[in-house]
Amino acid sequence: MTVPQIFDRTLIARNLARRPEERDDFVTRLVVTDLEERLATLSRKIGKALVLGPDLEALPAHGRTAVAPFSFKRLATLSPKATDGREPPQLPDSGYDLIVSLLDLQVVNDVPGYLAQLTRALAPDGLLLAAALGGESLTELRNAFLTADTEITGGAYARVAPFIPLRDGGGLLQRAGLALPVADIETHVVRYSSPLALMRELKSLGAANPLFDRPGRMVTRHLLAAACEAYSMVAGDHDGRVRATLEILWLSGWAPHESQQKPLRPGSAKVSLTKVLGDKTEE
C-alpha cells in the first residue's frame, strides 16, 4: 500500500540545515528534561539504548534510571543527505533495551510503520518511548491563518501541520505490537510578544510549513497582517502579548515478554462483585 506523502522531509531537512547557529530550542530542552524525569522512575538497568530525532546535536548522550546511568547511541533521522525516504533511517543495530524517539513522529508519513520498525529493534521486554507534538499544538496559529486566508483569498490553505491527537496514541502503539501501551499529554502555554515573534521563532527552529502539498503562493504582507490580527483577537492578553498552545504527546510501550502482566481470562475472577459492592436488588 502506498503511504500518502503528507510531509516533505527533504524540505524539513533543508530547513534544519539553514537554522542559525545561535538559537534557543526550548521545545527540545523541555522534552529532554521531561525524558529525564520519566527515565528516573524506571527501576531497571539499561544496557543498550538508542535515541533518535531530527537534530543530532539536541539528542542526549547519556541517561539515568532509578538504578544506574547508561549511554545512548544517537541517530539523526533527518539530514540534507537523507533522500532515500526511510522512516526512520536504517537503524544501526537491534536488541535494544530502550529506544527513544524525540520530536520526529509529527513529521513522519507512515507513523504505524515507523513505530513497528522501532518495535522490531527492541529486545524482549524492551521499552519504547516517543515524544511528539500533540494535536492541539499551535491551534491558535492554524486558526488565525485559516481566518486570514478565507478573508483575503476566499479559500482555506493548510499552513500549519497537523499533529497527532491523544486519542490516537494508544491505538498506534497497539498496531505496532507493543504491550502495556500508555499515551499521555503534557500541555504548556507559551507567551510571545506578538504573533510575528512566534512565527520568527518557528522559522529559526526549522519548523516552517513542512507539508508536501503546501500552498504554491507566498504569504503576502496583507495576508500576514490579517493572520496577526486574527491571532491577537483569539489569543491576545491585556499586556499585548499572545499565547501559544504547546502539547507534548508521550507514547510508551514494551516489547512483548512472558514476564509481563496479562489480563485475566473472562470468567476467571475468584470474588464476585456482588460480595464486594453488596446486593443492590433490595434497595
Results as ranks from 00 to 15, higher is better:
residue 64 R to P: 13
residue 105 L to C: 09
residue 70 F to C: 06
residue 102 L to A: 03
residue 129 L to A: 06
residue 257 H to K: 04
residue 190 V to W: 11
residue 14 R to I: 08
residue 66 A to L: 10
residue 6 I to W: 08
residue 259 S to F: 01
residue 252 S to N: 03
residue 105 L to D: 12
residue 246 L to P: 00
residue 150 T to W: 11
residue 225 A to C: 01
residue 7 F to Y: 12
residue 104 D to Y: 07
residue 215 P to K: 08
residue 276 V to A: 07
residue 108 V to Y: 03
residue 121 A to I: 05
residue 264 L to S: 14
residue 121 A to W: 01
residue 35 L to A: 07
residue 202 L to R: 02
residue 19 R to Q: 15
residue 9 R to H: 05
residue 35 L to Q: 13
residue 127 L to V: 07
residue 54 P to W: 00
residue 252 S to G: 11
residue 73 K to M: 14
residue 51 V to K: 07
residue 176 A to C: 06
residue 144 A to K: 04
residue 58 A to K: 01
residue 96 Y to N: 05
residue 105 L to G: 13
residue 122 L to N: 01
residue 195 P to E: 00
residue 67 V to D: 15
residue 274 T to Y: 09
residue 220 T to D: 06
residue 212 F to W: 11
residue 78 L to D: 09
residue 201 E to K: 02
residue 110 D to R: 04
residue 85 G to E: 11
residue 30 L to Q: 14
residue 41 T to R: 13
residue 65 T to Y: 07
residue 72 F to C: 10
residue 280 K to P: 13
residue 29 R to Q: 15
residue 83 T to P: 09
residue 69 P to Y: 00
residue 251 L to K: 00
residue 18 R to C: 14
residue 217 R to D: 14
residue 227 A to R: 06
residue 216 G to E: 11
residue 15 N to G: 02
residue 13 A to N: 04
residue 142 R to W: 07
residue 38 R to E: 13
residue 240 G to S: 03
residue 64 R to F: 10
residue 110 D to E: 05
residue 114 Y to P: 00
residue 157 Y to G: 05
residue 236 G to D: 05
residue 175 R to W: 02
residue 75 L to F: 07
residue 126 G to E: 03
residue 223 L to Q: 14
residue 146 L to I: 08
residue 19 R to V: 11
residue 20 P to G: 01
residue 16 L to M: 08
residue 216 G to D: 09
residue 182 V to D: 13
residue 126 G to K: 00
residue 181 P to H: 10
residue 134 G to S: 09
residue 13 A to R: 00
residue 227 A to H: 06
residue 108 V to I: 11
residue 31 V to L: 10
residue 143 N to S: 14
residue 255 A to R: 09
residue 256 P to M: 05
residue 266 P to D: 05
residue 236 G to H: 00
residue 53 G to S: 05
residue 185 I to F: 01
residue 126 G to M: 01
residue 217 R to L: 11
residue 114 Y to G: 01
residue 242 V to M: 05
residue 181 P to I: 06
residue 176 A to K: 08
residue 282 E to H: 13
residue 244 A to I: 00
residue 205 L to Y: 03
residue 208 A to H: 02
residue 199 M to V: 09
residue 264 L to E: 10
residue 58 A to D: 13
residue 40 A to W: 01
residue 156 A to T: 12
residue 107 V to A: 15
residue 129 L to T: 08
residue 243 R to N: 15
residue 156 A to D: 10
residue 216 G to H: 07
residue 95 G to L: 02
residue 103 L to R: 08
residue 164 I to V: 12
residue 24 D to L: 09
residue 20 P to S: 01
residue 134 G to A: 08
residue 166 L to R: 12
residue 83 T to H: 14
residue 37 E to C: 08
residue 88 P to M: 00
residue 37 E to W: 07
residue 271 V to Y: 13
residue 165 P to D: 12
residue 61 A to I: 06
residue 196 L to W: 07
residue 175 R to Q: 15
residue 218 M to H: 14
residue 107 V to S: 14
residue 77 T to F: 02
residue 212 F to R: 10
residue 212 F to M: 14
residue 199 M to W: 02
residue 79 S to F: 04
residue 90 Q to A: 14
residue 104 D to T: 11
residue 57 E to L: 05
residue 75 L to Y: 05
residue 176 A to G: 11
residue 14 R to L: 12
residue 30 L to D: 15
residue 135 G to S: 11
residue 87 E to M: 04
residue 123 A to D: 12
residue 130 A to R: 02
residue 261 Q to L: 12
residue 270 K to C: 08
residue 104 D to I: 05
residue 135 G to D: 06
residue 56 L to A: 11
residue 111 V to F: 02
residue 63 G to Q: 06
residue 7 F to D: 01
